[in-house]
Design a protein around this nucleic acid. Structure first.
Length: 501
RNA sequence: GGCCCAUUCGUCUAACGGUUAGGACAUGCGGUUUUCAUCCGUAAAAUAGGAGUUCGAUUCUCCUAUGGGCUACCA
């Protein structure tokens, strides 16, 4: 790549960003990193009606959590700011005017009410796809049909109007998408899109092209939902006489069941988050997020990277740096990917397993503030192999910290026999006499006792586990015993013997 | 309806004209751990259909089907 790579993620603050958006941001980030380029964020808030307070902060916080912060953007600043389109508002009108002057655009005075009426009419007449285009514009109220004086009069009277792109008749627009190859669309299928709205704001199309040009964007990497408007964008670059950036349209993230793209309600309906972070709507409705569900950002990113991309090698676990090294747009797949919640969990499990025990211990501290980091790290080592989330360690390893208050019914029925109490009482005496109370010694002495009594380990161990933990399964029982300590073992056994007899 | 994009195991995907169509997740079955989990092994599981092009098509072309996206003074 000869020119400097500059890519952008351009969300609109209309609500929380879902994981498809994060993935788009991620691919932009990876692409920039890979090519020593710049990744920036631009907030596209040209629709004042859909603005949602807090959405912008949510977006930034999500990117920050995921570890894919841009180097230019709102609050971050940068050479090409401001990075919020509403703050750039004054900038766009002259560009729209230029297009009118050189004949690529025109003023249109038709109200949106008239237009919807128009569409409804033609629909009932059996023409479902009425468009404001190269044919119909000649019968509409615009600067192409009105006299010069009349147009000027209306403009002077501040009559509401928009500026529309004058799409040429019967031309093939072609561009090479980095993921899909050549895409060709005939302009007869395009309509005269509004570039500048009557409220004084540009539409996405205008603002996007102007900003991408001014911010020297080299590659536009965005979702497939933008593919149909890419020809319009190509036409716009041409009309301005600018070089267009290279385009790459990413496959969509699809819902795991049935059909359609992932939407915000799917997550909680299907039992997995669709959002990076929790989001509460103004009405008080909560959409759950990956962070709060307990996912490590590293696992989340790794999982997301593989939804629509693969390195071409069997390696699946990638750090962010490794992803950036390996990433390439031509290994991005063309077809939409159904989100797989099981695979997401698997990634999380892998990352938890690899996470340092002391780090897990530190995170456990908020649940067990009276415990030492050292002990919590041991707890992590004991529990993490059978956990997916840190919360599982807390939930399943509770007995490591405090004595059981109940005993698993099924295990009691299956493993607690008539003679169990006697056996455990005897063993308790021996246990009390163990001097160096570590897992090895406890195990040796327990097994020696069993041998002496001709008891089977498999039948007896669960009884000890039951007394100590209240459960029928878990980590090695001697590790548990050593962890909770001799004094605690004795008191738990005594309490258990009372409870179970 | 129109336009555009896509189509390999249930899911994510590999194979860029020649492979017993590979891997991962999930699933089944074994083994290790006298528990559970981990780990290891193993099984089942796919080229949407039809025409071409070619000595040979998962791979190239066309048609059909299916899925998806777009079709606003939303992004």
């Amino acid at each position: 790549m000869s020119n400097k790579v500059r890519v952008r993620f351009a969300p609109s603050p209309t609500g929380p960003l879902h994981i498809g958006g994060i993935r788009t941001a991620l691919y932009n980030y990876l692409f920039a990193k890979k090519h020593q380029g710049t990744f920036l964020i631009r907030i596209e808030d040209t629709d004042q009606n859909r603005f949602v307070p807090g959405a912008q902060d949510y977006i930034m916080e999500s990117l920050n959590w995921a570890g894919i912060m841009p180097t230019e953007g709102p609050e971050l600043g940068g050479e090409y700011g401001p990075y919020v389109q509403s703050e750039r508002q004054a900038l766009y009108k002259p560009y729209a005017d230029t297009l009118v002057e050189n004949g690529h655009a025109y003023y249109a005075f038709d109200s949106s009410e008239e237009l919807t009426k128009m569409r409804d009419h033609s629909k009932t007449a059996g023409m479902p796809n009425w468009q404001y285009n190269s044919i119909t514009r000649s019968s509409m109220v615009n600067s192409l049909t009105l006299s010069r004086e009349e147009v000027q009069r209306r403009l002077d009277a501040c009559e509401p109007h928009v500026i529309r792109m004058k799409i040429p008749r019967n031309e093939d627009v072609r561009f090479e998408d980095l993921i899909r190859g050549w895409v060709v669309v005939n302009t007869n299928n395009l309509d005269d899109k509004v570039l500048f709205k009557s409220d004084g704001m540009p539409t996405y199309h205008l603002a996007n092209i102007v900003d991408d040009h001014m911010m020297k964007i080299s590659h536009v990497i965005r979702g497939e939902e933008w593919l149909p408007s890419a020809p319009l964008h190509v036409l716009l670059y041409k009309a301005f006489g600018w070089d267009a950036p290279l385009f790459a349209h990413l496959p969509l993230l699809l819902r795991p069941d049935g059909n359609g793209k992932l939407s915000k309600r799917d997550g909680d309906r299907l039992g997995f988050p669709v959002f990076p972070l929790n989001w509460t709507t103004a009405e008080g409705e909560l959409y759950s997020g990956y962070r709060e569900a307990g996912y490590l950002p590293t696992a989340f990113i790794n999982m997301l990277a593989f939804l629509g991309w693969n390195p071409g090698t069997p390696q699946e676990i990638f750090s962010l740096e490794e992803l950036a090294q390996s990433f390439s747009l031509n290994r991005v797949s063309k077809s939409g990917a159904k989100f797989d919640a099981d695979k997401a969990k698997w990634f999380q499990q892998q990352y938890l397993k690899a996470l340092d025990n002391t780090i897990i211990g530190q995170k456990l501290l908020s649940h067990y503030p009276t415990e030492s980091i050292e002990r919590l790290a041991i707890m992590a080592g004991l529990m993490k192999e059978r956990a997916v989330f840190i919360s599982d360690i807390v939930a399943e390893g509770e007995y490591l910290i405090s004595a059981p208050i109940e005993y698993d019914e099924q295990t009691v029925i299956k493993k607690w026999k008539a003679d169990s109490a006697d056996i455990m009482r005897e063993w308790l005496v021996i246990l009390s006499s163990i001097t160096s109370f570590n897992a090895d010694n406890i195990e040796k002495s327990f097994k020696a006792y069993l041998e002496d009594q001709h008891l089977a380990f498999g039948a007896t161990m669960p009884q000890l586990r039951l007394l100590l933990t209240g459960k029928g399964l878990g980590p090695g029982i001697f590790d548990i015993a050593a962890f909770i300590g001799k004094k605690e073992c004795i008191s738990r056994m005594q309490a258990g013997l009372i409870a179970l007899t």
